[in-house]
C-alpha cells in the first residue's frame, strides 16, 4: 500500500505531467484564462484519463497480448481515448451547454492531449497492474487539475495587475508558468 501512495504523490507532484514532464501544455495555456473553464477542463481530463487508462490496460492485456498484436497499442489506445473524449463532449454538451461553448475547441482537443495518451502508453510500457494503472492515471490527472486550477487563479490575478506594456498577456503568463515549474523542480530526484 505504501508504494501505491508514493506512486500517487509521485505522479501528482514530483513528476507532475504539466510542470515536470511538460505534457498537456496546450490546454494548460488555453483554458486557464478563466477559473471555471480551467476547473471544467481539469475534471473532463481526469474523467477521460482514468476511463481511457483503465480501458487501454484491459484492451492491451485481454486483446492485444493474446493475439500478439502489441505493436498496435498506439492505434488501439487512440481509438479508446477518442471514444472517451467523445463521450465526455456529449455529456458536457448535455449538462451545461454554456461551459461546452466556453471550452470550445479545447474539449475535443483532449484526444490529442499528450498526457492522456502518455499515461496509457507509460502504464502498459511499465507493465503496471490494473490497480497501479488506475492510481497512476488518477495521480497524473489530479496533478494536471491541481496545476490547472492554481494557474488559472494566478492568471485571473495577473489581469488585475498594472503590468508593463511589454509583459501584458502571454509573456507574463509564460514567466509565471516558468517560475511555477521552477518550484516543482525542487522535487526532482525523489
Amino acid at each position: 500500500m505504501a508504494e501505491l501512495a508514493a506512486a500517487l504523490v509521485g505522479s501528482l507532484l514530483v513528476n507532475n505531467f504539466v510542470l515536470a514532464q511538460f505534457l498537456g501544455l496546450c490546454p494548460f495555456f488555453g483554458t486557464t484564462q478563466r477559473y471555471d473553464t480551467a476547473l471544467a477542463m481539469g475534471l473532463a481530463t481526469t474523467f477521460v484519463l482514468c476511463l481511457a487508462a483503465t480501458l487501454c490496460h484491459m484492451v492491451y492485456h485481454l486483446l492485444l497480448v493474446p493475439l500478439g498484436l502489441e505493436y498496435l497499442n498506439i492505434i488501439a489506445f487512440i481509438v479508446i481515448v477518442a471514444g472517451a473524449v467523445q463521450l465526455t463532449e456529449m455529456y458536457v454538451k448535455a449538462t451545461s451547454r454554456v461551459l461546452y461553448q466556453l471550452l470550445g475547441i479545447y474539449l475535443p482537443l483532449i484526444t490529442t492531449n499528450c498526457a492522456v495518451l502518455g499515461v496509457a502508453l507509460l502504464a502498459t510500457g511499465k507493465a503496471l497492474s490494473f490497480i497501479e494503472t488506475l492510481v497512476f492515471a488518477a495521480g497524473a490527472a489530479g496533478g494536471f487539475t491541481l496545476v490547472m486550477v492554481m494557474f488559472s487563479a494566478m492568471r485571473e490575478q495577473l489581469v488585475t495587475r498594472d503590468l508593463p506594456q511589454a509583459m501584458r498577456g502571454t509573456p507574463i503568463t509564460l514567466v509565471s508558468a516558468g517560475i511555477l515549474a521552477l518550484g516543482v523542480m525542487g522535487f526532482q530526484g525523489l
Binding site: I179, L180, L182, G183, V184, M185, G186
Partner: peptide, 8 residues
C-alpha cells in the same frame, strides 16, 4: 521551492 509553491 517551498516558498515558490506556496506563493503559487
Amino acid at each position: 521551492f517551498g516558498v515558490l509553491l506556496a506563493n503559487a
